[in-house]
Computed example of a mutant assay.
Amino acid sequence: MKKHINMLREFSVPLISGVAVALLWVNLAPESYYHFDFDKRFGLFSFHFIVNDFFMVLFFGIAAAEITQSCLPGGDLHPLRKAINPLLATVGGVVGPVVVYLALNAIIGDPSLRRGWGIPTATDIALAWLVASLVFGRRHPAISFLLLLAIADDAIGLAIIAIFYPDPTVPVAPQWLVLVVSGMGVAALLRRRNTQSYWPYIILGGGLSWAGLFMAHLHPALALVFIVPFLPHPPRETKHIFEEDPQDLSPLASFEHEWKVMVDLGLFMFGLANAGVQLTTIGDATWLVLAALAIGKTGGIFIMGWLGQRLGYPLPSKVGMKELALVGLIAGVGLTVALFVAGEAFTDSINQGAAKMGALLSVGCAIVALIAGRVMNVRRIEG
């Protein structure tokens, strides 16, 4: 059973299945789908709210755990000099799509679509890992480089939501952010007392952080990003990103190990809640998002990665210009968080649906990357 579950996770079957079910459901019975997704259960929460405001807290909490581990001595982002090139490439992977989106929209001349500039800034972590493994092999250094980019620009995507896409009907209430600071204070106190269970950090610190962001009318999916770095961890990291260390029993490693399976399988719910796009909603926003992801991501990551190397901050070993170009192309698969941001960027169903369709079509970048990897004869490293 464990082997079968790991295979489902490895090939992103839950996420892809959720997207497929949502697309079929909304196109065959749209009214039924929208009632399921948005109607409140027992007068409290809708399925859409439960997934995006509760489940995604864990998704980004896992991402925060990986970034924390990568910053430790021995990690992929330590020392700082080692992190400069991935960080520069991340900047390119965010700025490039924004520039392409806004430039193309200026040509189209549709002011109503300007708000969508934040949608193509994100990368789908799960699908990026899957495609990169098929292109490069499981142990290629390009995969760690790509995953660091994916996690970092997903975090930036959530920050963009918090800062640039507040609910226009509800003004931001920054005074409630004191609860977020209080949650961080609780986590710091627990760390100082050497609390060796992650539960108090998540329940007390995470609960305060979630409430603070929610009351401030900022997206609460970021709640654990402020808490997870306080979880106790070893002084050194011995594994690459998303590699488990069986010897590491720290609260940080235990949190990731015990929740990652649920998060990976729970991506079915995310796909079901967010990928319900009717095929008739293809429009200008579709092509803007798709072009920004395919062209802007690839070009931005390649240019900034190349520039970083020219400035004396090298790429990982065995990552040359063709590998860097493929990393940028794979990063153009913007499914998960791009769908998430599209739901916040546009309030009208037409532009929102068209933008989500662009995020869905960005999966085509994966197909192009697989073909390009073969054509460019990229050397795979499996062990």
Results as ranks from 00 to 15, higher is better:
2 K>Q: 13
3 K>A: 12
4 H>N: 13
7 M>W: 15
14 P>H: 05
14 P>V: 13
16 I>H: 03
29 A>L: 15
31 E>T: 09
34 Y>S: 12
39 D>V: 05
40 K>Q: 11
41 R>G: 15
43 G>S: 03
49 F>A: 14
50 I>N: 06
55 F>D: 07
58 L>C: 07
60 F>L: 01
62 I>H: 00
64 A>Q: 02
68 T>A: 15
71 C>F: 08
71 C>G: 07
72 L>Y: 09
78 H>F: 14
84 I>Y: 09
92 G>K: 10
98 V>P: 05
100 V>C: 09
106 A>T: 14
107 I>Y: 07
124 D>I: 02
127 L>H: 10
131 V>M: 10
135 V>C: 06
135 V>K: 05
138 R>L: 04
138 R>M: 10
143 I>L: 08
144 S>H: 10
153 D>P: 01
157 G>L: 08
158 L>K: 06
159 A>F: 14
173 A>D: 12
174 P>T: 11
175 Q>L: 11
176 W>Q: 01
182 S>G: 15
188 A>M: 12
196 Q>G: 11
198 Y>W: 11
202 I>L: 13
205 G>N: 05
213 L>I: 01
222 L>S: 11
226 F>Y: 08
229 P>R: 01
231 L>G: 06
233 H>M: 11
234 P>Q: 09
234 P>R: 00
250 S>R: 00
259 W>Q: 11
269 M>K: 09
270 F>M: 12
271 G>P: 10
272 L>I: 06
278 Q>C: 08
293 L>I: 10
298 T>K: 04
303 I>C: 13
306 W>V: 09
311 L>H: 02
313 Y>K: 00
314 P>L: 04
314 P>T: 04
318 K>H: 11
320 G>K: 05
320 G>D: 11
325 A>I: 03
328 G>P: 01
329 L>A: 05
330 I>Y: 05
334 G>T: 12
345 A>I: 03
346 F>H: 09
360 L>I: 15
363 V>E: 08
373 G>W: 01
383 G>H: 13
